[in-house]
Amino acid sequence: MAITHMAVLATALLALLCLPCAVAVVVCADELVARRLFSRGGRQETHALRCLEREFSAGNLELRPPDHEPSLEELVAELRRLDRQRRSSPTIDSAAWLTAVLRAYDHRLAMASRSLGLTEHLAQLDGMDREIERVRVEGLLHAAGLRLRAA
């Protein structure tokens, strides 16, 4: 009986001592797997990055904004899509998602306003002032003949 108690006590102490190691392995396992997977292609990626850096520092590459300005029709289509997304209740109730949609919507509103020569102040405002400016800009675009909401 004393031997059984001693074996149970030894097993319990061993489990107690090994528990932090087991938790650390479980917590860090994803990092170990990711390191192992990405270490295989690391040389090729490093070589490609060094080549790009060499080309850029030599002046052979330059960073320029894209030449393609979206047409007014493309902007209206994007505004309609973003308007549907911001008005519909998202399946994921996420404030970050709604903020990103509103930011993209405001950016497209500003682009459409600039293309028509209208003034807007969306970038300078926040909160309720931005909401009011958004409604004002939508009204200006509607008065200019753009239908931002599908029938």
Rank of each mutant, 00 (worst) to 15 (best):
L72Y: 01
L72E: 08
E73T: 07
E73P: 00
E73S: 11
E73W: 10
E73H: 07
E73N: 09
E73L: 12
E74K: 00
L75Y: 03
L75S: 02
L75Q: 02
L75T: 01
V76G: 06
V76I: 15
V76E: 10
V76S: 03
A77L: 15
A77H: 14
A77M: 14
E78G: 12
E78T: 12
E78P: 04
E78C: 09
E78F: 07
L79F: 01
L79S: 00
L79H: 00
L79T: 00
L79N: 00
R80L: 02
R80H: 04
R80F: 03
R80S: 05
R81P: 02
R81A: 14
R81I: 07
R81N: 08
R81F: 12
L82Q: 07
L82V: 06
L82D: 04
L82H: 09
L82Y: 05
D83V: 01
D83Q: 10
D83L: 10
R84E: 12
R84V: 10
R84C: 09
R84T: 12
Q85K: 14
Q85W: 13
Q85L: 14
Q85G: 02
Q85H: 12
Q85P: 00
R86N: 02
R86L: 15
R87L: 09
R87I: 03
R87P: 01
S88D: 06
S88A: 11
S88Q: 07
S88N: 08
S89I: 12
S89P: 04
S89F: 13
S89R: 15
S89D: 11
P90V: 03
P90M: 10
P90I: 05
P90E: 02
P90D: 02
P90C: 08
T91R: 15
T91S: 11
T91Q: 13
T91M: 15
I92Q: 13
I92M: 15
I92S: 14
I92R: 13
I92W: 13
D93P: 03
D93W: 07
D93Q: 13
D93N: 12
D93R: 13
D93H: 11
S94A: 07
S94E: 04
S94H: 11
S94F: 06
S94P: 04
S94G: 03
A95W: 03
A95M: 10
A95P: 11
A95C: 03
A96G: 00
W97A: 08
W97V: 08
W97G: 00
L98I: 02
L98K: 09
L98A: 07
L98T: 03
L98G: 00
L98H: 05
T99G: 07
T99K: 12
T99H: 09
T99S: 15
T99F: 09
T99N: 12
A100L: 14
A100I: 04
A100F: 06
A100M: 10
A100G: 05
V101R: 00
V101M: 06
V101T: 09
V101W: 00
V101P: 01
V101C: 04
V101F: 03
L102K: 06
L102G: 02
L102C: 11
L102M: 13
R103V: 05
R103D: 14
R103S: 14
R103C: 10
R103T: 13
A104G: 01
A104Y: 00
A104V: 01
A104N: 08
A104R: 13
A104T: 05
A104I: 04
Y105D: 06
Y105F: 15
Y105W: 15
Y105C: 05
Y105A: 05
Y105N: 09
D106G: 11
D106Q: 15
